[in-house]
Computed example of a mutant assay.
Amino acid sequence: MNYTLNQLRIFVKVAQNQSITKASEELHLTQPAVSIQLRNFQDQFPIPLTEVVGRRLYLTEFGKEIALASEKVLSEINAINYKTLEYGGNLAGQLKIAVVSTGKYVMPYFLSGFMTKHSKVDLVMDVTNKASVIRSLENNEVDFALVSVLPKHLNIDKVELMENILYLVGSEDSLKIDKKRRLKSLANAPLIFRENGSATRMAMENYLNSKNIKVSKKVELTSNEAVKQAVVAGLGYSIMPLIGIKNELMNDSLKIYNLPGLPIKTNWNLIWMSSKRFSPVAKTFLKYLKEEKESIIQTEFNWFKSYAKKEYG
């Protein structure tokens, strides 16, 4: 057998995406180039690695075993490269962080300075819903996770980053909520929710339940951006984190509505398993975060504090 590291990388990426198209996009290669390398890799095995069923590509059982072995080989190659850099006096390695979807408005600001300072560190940041983030942490697939609701079933440590504030928002063109009867009006208004597993959805449902509001019109969307655009378009109202609607508030495409019991206040926390054995990269990042956290908040999120203190009609 005479397969190359490039073929291993391509096969692993195809296996992860179960799609040549998506793999080519992530690898910044053309589809024909990926297909050729995949075929050359397959030609070295007497057993099929993939199969196409109903126009979808799947790994065979043998293909799954080869994908796992390939990932291990590539991981060891990366380890050799990082060790070489470390012996040259550079901090090197991967920093892996899972972030709940709304956290994408928060986490990059706490990473930027660190990544600039340590150019040999590679960042892997997975932005997904809360359930997937916690699963990644529990399975030791990441170093850290950013959440606003702490998992009660895991033994974790944490660094509290900053406050997370959620308001009821709607567009200027949406159905006006009667100021005198807002809670009752909300029950009859179309409400837009995140998908199950989202901490924002959980906060919204808890609020509605606490006020005995029975939802009559409900829309469910799978990302914070989708919810925001739906609210801007006037499809309904939603309870959303302030951190993700800065531009829309500034250009008046979203309006905050005052209701009893709002805003909801939680905290953004960077968490990790208490039993986690940190790599030098993870250890250095945690030290950086503790030292620079307040400065980052003051520099990057000063606008956030001013909005949070406002009174809304």
Rank of each mutant, 00 (worst) to 15 (best):
S185I: 12
L27N: 04
I77H: 04
A203G: 00
L29G: 00
E138S: 08
Q16C: 03
R194T: 04
A230G: 03
R181I: 14
L29A: 01
R277N: 15
H28R: 06
L235Q: 14
R135D: 05
V281E: 15
F304V: 02
I80P: 07
L146S: 11
E225K: 07
I296H: 06
K255T: 09
K180G: 15
S70M: 09
P46F: 09
D43K: 14
L254W: 14
L254N: 15
R56G: 01
G197F: 13
R181G: 06
Y237C: 02
I192D: 10
L249E: 06
G103W: 01
I10P: 12
G103H: 03
K96N: 14
L161S: 01
K293T: 07
K228N: 10
S223D: 12
P280G: 15
A67G: 07
E160A: 11
K117N: 04
R135F: 05
G236W: 00
T21Y: 15
Y82K: 01
L259N: 00
F62N: 14
E292Q: 09
L91Q: 04
A67M: 12
T60A: 14
V133N: 01
I245M: 11
P48F: 03
L38A: 08
E225A: 07
V100A: 03
V106Y: 02
S75F: 09
Y167T: 04
A92M: 08
K287S: 13
Q229V: 02
P190T: 06
G54W: 00
I156Q: 12
M115C: 09
F11P: 13
A67C: 10
D143P: 03
Y82Q: 07
F114V: 10
M273P: 06
Y237N: 00
D173M: 09
S210C: 07
V73R: 11
S216P: 00
A23L: 15
I165Y: 02
K130R: 02
V231I: 03
F278S: 09
M202R: 12
N196V: 05
N164P: 13
E160R: 03
R277H: 13
I297D: 03
D126E: 10
A79Y: 09
I66K: 02
V53T: 15
R201D: 07
A131H: 05
Y58H: 15
T116H: 05
L59V: 06
E26P: 08
V121R: 01
Y288H: 05
T60V: 15
L175A: 09
V121W: 02
R194Q: 14
L221G: 11
I256N: 10
K217H: 11
E292T: 07
K158L: 15
K152T: 11
P32A: 00
